[in-house]
Design a protein around this nucleic acid. Structure first.
Lengths: 154, 154
DNA sequence: GGATAAAATTATATATACCTAATAACCATT
DNA sequence: AATGGTTATTAGGTATATATAATTTTATCC
């Protein structure tokens, strides 16, 4: 899916993902839940809901519970996939903490396209396989990185 | 340098980089050159110049040539560094074309922080060294990725 | 040196994305 | 069914980032 060509702003993508997560965990979403998960005020959510609704990504009627349309769900699922691939790379390979990997993935997922995402995914898989079969490359890198940090800081 | 804490928007960062590149290649920058290199209208550039100037990142007076302040140059140089590290990773390791690597780096450079940039840089160095000293890992990955694409497409 | 072209700026408008404050709707309890 | 609390929306304001159209300034060229 070519999300970049769908004319959905980065913020709208973030709202969509938040709503997707809430729908997965609670079956639906509400203004307040979304506001809390995004760290914004409810008034901001209401506006975002209007634009997502205009783009037919969510089912939204004033003062009713919010769900994703089929299209919205497809987009959200694709974003979630990108997020996972990137955060796995950052955490499992580069060795960032889960939290840092997650935060960075939130930002990177919107700016990589389908093909780049696939390359990342394949690369993570490749390195894991290599590390299992032969020398533990991933561990070797992470150790060398830690050593370097220690040399730098004291 | 913690660019994320400097309160410079992504677009302003892009303008700063464009101006930096133009200053490197031409010694200074003009509204029209910037507009062309950014793909926007001159009127948009003028506004961006005002905000960059307000933040003391550029030396700007109406209808005079534009240069970077010391601070602006520091920020721009740091952004250029991030750009290079990311595009090297995407091109040399993941195997994207130069052009695609460059385009993606333009977007990613703004959303990674100092520490993540360092990890990327170290990782690229590590893999290159490993690939030189032992088995050609990078080549092996790129070959396996190409093979996979061929299997998929025909 | 005046006409014209190019470059830059201003004025005005649109869209996104956030905020606070005010209001409206819903619901829960008595 | 009135009241009070929670949730949601509207109204109005700010900031960014773009655009077009009009104007102003600067440069060029006969």
């Amino acid at each position: 899916m070519k999300i970049q060509e769908l004319n959905i702003s980065l913020n709208q993508q973030n709202y969509l993902e938040a709503i997707y997560e809430l729908c997965v965990t609670h079956g639906h979403a509400h203004t307040k839940m979304i506001a809390e998960s995004m760290g914004v005020r409810m008034a901001s959510v209401t506006e975002a809901l209007r634009s997502l609704s205009a783009k037919e990504l969510i089912n939204y009627e004033v003062r009713k519970t919010i769900t994703l349309t089929k299209h919205g769900e497809d987009v959200a699922r694709e974003l979630a996939k990108r997020h996972k691939i990137i955060s796995d790379f950052l955490h499992q390979i580069l060795g960032c903490s889960m939290q840092r990997a997650d935060e960075a993935a939130c930002r990177i997922e919107h700016v990589i396209d389908e093909k780049l995402k696939d390359r990342f995914a394949e690369f993570v898989q490749f390195l894991k396989k290599e590390s299992e079969q032969g020398e533990d490359l991933i561990g070797k890198f992470q150790k060398s990185y830690q050593d370097m940090l220690e040399r730098q800081n004291g």
